[in-house]
Design a protein around this nucleic acid. Sequence first.
DNA 1: CTGCGGTGCTAATCCGCATTAGCAGCGACT
DNA 2: AGTCGCTGCTAATGCGGATTAGCACCGCAG
Lengths: 363, 363
Amino acid sequence: MSTSQTPPRRITQRRIAALAGVSQATVSLVLNDKADGDARIPEETRERVLKVLRETGYVADPAARRLAGVGNKILGVFTYEPAFPTESRDFYAPLLSGIEQAAENLGCDLLLFTSAPVVNGTRRLLHEHNRLRLADGCLLLGVEMDHAELERLVADGFPFVAIGRRDVDGVPYVAIDYTSGTARLVGEAWELGHRRFAYLHVDSRGESVFDRRAGVLDELARRGGDAALAELVAIPSLGDDLERDWAAIRSSGATVVVVETAEWAERLHAFAVRDGVDVPAELGMIVLAEPGRGGSRVEFTRLSPPRTELAAAATSLLARMLDPDDRVEQGELRQTLPCPTLAGATLVAPAASGTRSTPEGSA
Amino acid sequence: MSTSQTPPRRITQRRIAALAGVSQATVSLVLNDKADGDARIPEETRERVLKVLRETGYVADPAARRLAGVGNKILGVFTYEPAFPTESRDFYAPLLSGIEQAAENLGCDLLLFTSAPVVNGTRRLLHEHNRLRLADGCLLLGVEMDHAELERLVADGFPFVAIGRRDVDGVPYVAIDYTSGTARLVGEAWELGHRRFAYLHVDSRGESVFDRRAGVLDELARRGGDAALAELVAIPSLGDDLERDWAAIRSSGATVVVVETAEWAERLHAFAVRDGVDVPAELGMIVLAEPGRGGSRVEFTRLSPPRTELAAAATSLLARMLDPDDRVEQGELRQTLPCPTLAGATLVAPAASGTRSTPEGSA
DNA sequence: CTGCGGTGCTAATCCGCATTAGCAGCGACT
DNA sequence: AGTCGCTGCTAATGCGGATTAGCACCGCAG
């Protein structure tokens, strides 16, 4: 039987070539429209190959393409904190949504590095089985990122974009201007007459956390100098004992509390209701994040960080970095989006301006 | 300079080999612990190679591994409906969550095929640039799936698992037993005295939609034969004009309405409140899905499909199919999870039992 | 001294594709 | 007749790793 070519399972360029009576190279040339320059394929041959391609439903093996050095339109997505616990979900959901939208528009697939092992609380990107190189580039999400890993990535020349500002040389990122947004809210409170601020903040070394803190501190310093700063009661928290934090806020004599996360704000508000503390008359509340899924019963005066847009912008930036036709300027590698604020209903002038919120002041 | 090997960028096995004074093959053997059989590597050499490996932080290129025919622990995830629009989010979120958890436990990465083009309302998996083969196997999600595509996948021998029952030979799936769950709720309503049912259902050819419908029809037929079926008012809907559907329900004289989606139920309930229709006294409501994000103000009597577990089970099944050491029996390729129901507060005995809910009956 | 069965490794090949150098054939021109 | 230049294609190579056939060496039995 002369027709007994061994019947290989998958459809490869070689098989197409055999069927069309050309060489594998020709098939590749047709597929990639490289019919210029040295290689010339007349229309007739081209059609013949395309016909076979169509009939067989050929699809290039992305692994082979990647190995041969071409991009494969895959964007890696790495989350430093495990993504599925419910607490993290609110954090990641809008980001992933933005990434997804952008990826769909760009025609990219997304590779989620769910396999990264958790070492001590935080996940490791560069472990021995990482599939990083399967992606053309990578998006990094998370509150805290391992700076050593970031440096390694920069050194390796691997294309990536961090979501959120990063304090590491050479790291491209898209961030939100938390500092200005926070300062604006604090400034408003100041103008309303508040002088004694409590600040319940996340105890983390993440850059965004730092930026929000800077917003509070800078604005107070700007308004009232060291004296104003001295009035600030900063309460670092892990969220594990908000009852204690609430007590600290109440005993601080603050007329307004700046709360870093929506969930804490929600719970503090519940304490206030329980204890008959009038928000905002007796205690103003400023929240530096958006409510999680399901929204909130309380219309907090707060930041409204454009997190979905943030992620989409980062995705677009990464795509541009990966596009060989696109020369991304050095200055474009770091972008900062403004952070809008929402007026809300939890900030008014303090009950007795000038009085340090003594109980009798609220009558 | 004898040491002037050209300094290649990336760390490959060849470089490791040069540094350790062995051959590339040896490095590969050490890496894969293939020190049995023909190939023998003494501890000393092994250690030497491992040392270099550690020092350089070598990571295998997954594309090369894949090309060489080994699995790479990547699970594809394909959603037939675009995943990011808000309506779809409630549908996909619990599924993706389950997949993510399972993948993390299994040490797998996830490849989201966000690039699939939308052809007419539904996305195409098998397009010309699909990166399917990068994954070891694939999970398929969606209400309706293209049966031709499924058949093609089966024919190609590509490992995949559908989430939800599929009416195509040879397609492995994990499903939820919507039929029994729905029948149970309908049965309860029947026993409470309801005889005239309205059924507001999705107008789709999806198998799960069919199963829920079967639950309604079968149970009614079982309870009251053709006569009961004749009393059923089925209202197919696209959700685009619920006001009209609501009118249809009201004029049908039904004492209870079975609603297929949580969102519709929510909106119908709002109509009921607006129109002063007492739920459940005047109109019972049975919902065949769980409320979306943010929960619901109304505690509907409803199905509580274990969607996260469903997805996790499908992921585990796929992983087992991909494990060469695991012989998955034919019978295990199709699994059905039971569907719990929630009593809720929207189903009681009809106002005037026996009376066909004439307006004067509700006084 | 020869043969023989381990031991310790390496050369070579393949996976599927992209890419490049270059060959054969042909008409035109000198 | 020679050769130049163009056309239309293919052979060959490399990407990085897995795998296999088999080579060189050594100690030991015969």
